[in-house]
Amino acid sequence: MARLDVRDIQPVNRHSIIHDEFEALEPGETLTIVNDHEPKPLFYEFQAEVERFDADGYEVERHAPDEFVARFPKLAA
Rank of each mutant, 00 (worst) to 15 (best):
L31D: 00
R52E: 15
S16E: 15
T30E: 13
E38A: 15
A2K: 11
E67N: 01
F46I: 03
I18E: 12
F53R: 02
F46D: 04
L4I: 11
P11I: 09
G57K: 00
D20V: 12
P73R: 01
V69I: 03
R62T: 14
H15I: 13
D54Q: 04
P11M: 11
E59A: 12
E49N: 12
A76Y: 04
E23Y: 06
F22Y: 08
D66Q: 15
E21Y: 04
V69P: 02
T32N: 09
Q47L: 05
R14M: 14
E49F: 08
A2Y: 08
I9E: 07
R52S: 15
I9H: 09
V34H: 02
A48N: 02
A76G: 09
R52A: 15
H15P: 08
E29D: 11
E29P: 02
Q47T: 09
D66P: 12
D5M: 06
A24Q: 11
E51Y: 05
Q10T: 14
L4W: 07
D54I: 02
L4Q: 10
L31W: 01
Q10R: 15
E21T: 07
A70M: 04
E21M: 05
H15C: 09
F46L: 02
P65A: 07
D36W: 01
I17A: 13
E49W: 08
I9S: 08
R62F: 13
H15E: 13
I18A: 05
D66M: 12
P41D: 09
D5R: 07
P11N: 12
H15N: 12
F46S: 01
I33N: 04
D36C: 09
R7H: 09
V6D: 14
L25D: 04
I33S: 06
N35D: 08
A64Y: 00
A55T: 03
I33W: 02
H63F: 05
F53G: 05
D36Y: 04
D20E: 10
E59S: 11
E38T: 13
V6I: 12
S16I: 11
G57P: 00
A2P: 05
F72E: 00
A55D: 02
I9Q: 06
D56E: 13
L31G: 02
H63R: 14
P27I: 10
F72M: 00
H19L: 14
F72P: 00
V34F: 03
R71P: 05
E49D: 12
Y58H: 11
V69Y: 01
A55E: 04
K40W: 06
E38M: 14
L42S: 03
F72Y: 02
P41A: 06
D5L: 05
T32D: 05
R3G: 09
K40L: 08
H15W: 10
P39M: 11
A76L: 05
D54G: 04
A2H: 08
I33K: 03
F53N: 04
N35M: 05
E59N: 10
N35R: 07
F53T: 06
E21F: 02
H63S: 11
V6E: 12
S16T: 13
T32G: 09
A77Q: 06
I33M: 08
A2W: 06
A24F: 09
G28K: 13
R71G: 10
D36H: 07
F43Y: 15
D66I: 11
G28P: 09
E29Q: 14
Y44K: 03
H37I: 08
N13H: 15
E59L: 07
G57A: 01
E26S: 09
P11F: 06
A55S: 00
R14I: 13
E51V: 10
